[in-house]
Amino acid sequence: MSDAEETIPIKDEYAIVAARSAGKTISSKCGFGLVDQTRISTAISELARNILVYAVTGTVYIREVAADGKHGIEVVAEDHGPGIVNLDLAMTDGHTTGGGLGAGLPGTKRLMDEFDIISAVGEGTTVTVRKWL
């Protein structure tokens, strides 16, 4: 059922643009309206930017998903960077260690329906977000 899928290696800002673009294409294909497409692409930007800032390189996977009769989009941002030492803190509004305007994580969480984060210090971070139609 879920056929649309994209894997985008993140190594520079152009890759972020590519990930956004792929996110928009897939979300549009899933049937999301312009408002949600914008939310999704903004969230992808944040996740990809986090990879660039904190882990330097990583990968963003975007795919159409279906579960429990729901249909939507899933974005997985994975890196093998330093990991997040204090997850609770990283999820606090306004907290930043990367010199940004506060971490994109809380903002990303607000833009999507589901948000999961797994992080191990020294091993990396995987953020999975979903938005349902």
Partner: peptide
């Protein structure tokens, strides 16, 4: 629309950051 969504998201973060500070 992109601009406004990003603006609002960043603004939300900004308010939260100031409040915490």
């Amino acid at each position: 629309f992109n601009l406004m969504v990003a603006y609002a998201t960043a603004y939300h973060d900004y308010i939260a950051m100031n409040e915490e500070r």
